[in-house]
Amino acid sequence: MPLSITNTDLQYEDQDLGFGSLSRVVLARHNHNGTYYAIKIMSKNQVISNKAVDLVMQEKEILGRLEHPNVVSIISTFQTDIELYYVLEYCNGGELLYHIEVQKGLDPLTTKWVTAELVNAVTYLHLQGVAHRDLKPQNVVFIHTEHGPHLKLIDFATAAVSTEQPRPLGKIVRTADDELEDLDDAADERMRSRWHAREAQGKRFIGTCQYCSPEMIIDCTATYSSDLWALGTVVYHMVAGTGAFDDEDSFAVLKRILSWKFTYPEGFDAGARTLCDALIVLCPTARLGVGPTGCAGDQLKAHPYFTGVDWDALPTQQLDVHLSEWEPAATQKL
């Protein structure tokens, strides 16, 4: 973070870029160099009351050590008496979710290039010992560069430095039946009470239910393998235009995930399907990209779906990506 920026250096635009459970992100322009930044603002009281101090500090530490063309950059941080501020790179191309919903699914070539850049970002994180733990279309944004649009992975609020290895399937199966029984009873309060009990043991539910892995639902465990499950569900969403486990009832979503209950719609791209089949796998140790001793990103990049991808040239390549017109207000309207 080479720049030192404070509130007096910024002119805030009347434009919200997004909201999180503990934050809001607004657009601001630097008074001296004219550069636009995304400013993440967090209330200190809210962070403390939600027992999220460690997560907030961890996000700052993780972003400060990451440097990759497909990962958002943190420029500076500062604070006032009541708020924390993260000055982040502004990505002016909108969220992946926006483009999926406007186009009702992306075309096969766009999906392939977006997936390749996502793989680039995720494998980099894993080699750095970082699990994102909330990979979803809302946390993938685009930036227009001299080489055309490229993506950035954002929102490391629940990311973690993790050396924990994925557990084999057997340890999940032994507890899955109990979880499914709770879900069959539609026991909202019972499920929440179980999660509260896990929090008391130092565990907490992390992520977004439509993209979360079975191991997160069962015992609030998320490793880099959980990112690979989420990657598969994001690819599915790009192709189909809807999520693999979508349901209006959140607990029905969880039940679908634990039951591995999803189908491919007619016309689903065959190459993307083989990749999804290798990632949306119940057993955490059986997902493509999980090696015997850790992350196996090379295996993931070698999948036939990525034939023709020049991984070294990818960040500066002019990609054949078709995106919709976007302005900051568009996401909120949608």
Rank of each mutant, 00 (worst) to 15 (best):
I5E: 02
D81M: 09
A252C: 10
K60E: 00
H150Y: 11
S226C: 09
T274K: 11
T316V: 12
L97H: 03
P168T: 10
S23M: 07
T208I: 04
P166S: 06
D184L: 04
M42Q: 03
L314F: 06
D107Q: 13
Q58N: 15
P137R: 02
L254A: 04
G202D: 08
A116D: 03
K112T: 05
I48E: 02
L10S: 05
Y86L: 15
A157L: 02
S21H: 01
L282I: 15
Y98D: 01
P284I: 14
Y264N: 01
N50L: 02
N139D: 03
Y124R: 00
V141I: 13
E13C: 14
A222C: 15
P137G: 00
L228K: 14
P292Q: 04
I75T: 06
Y85K: 05
E179S: 12
L84M: 10
G34P: 00
A286I: 15
G241E: 08
R167C: 08
L55I: 05
G232L: 09
V239L: 07
V281K: 02
D310N: 11
P292D: 09
T110N: 06
H147K: 11
D269H: 13
H303M: 05
V239T: 11
V26N: 04
K261P: 10
I154V: 06
V173K: 12
T6V: 15
G148R: 12
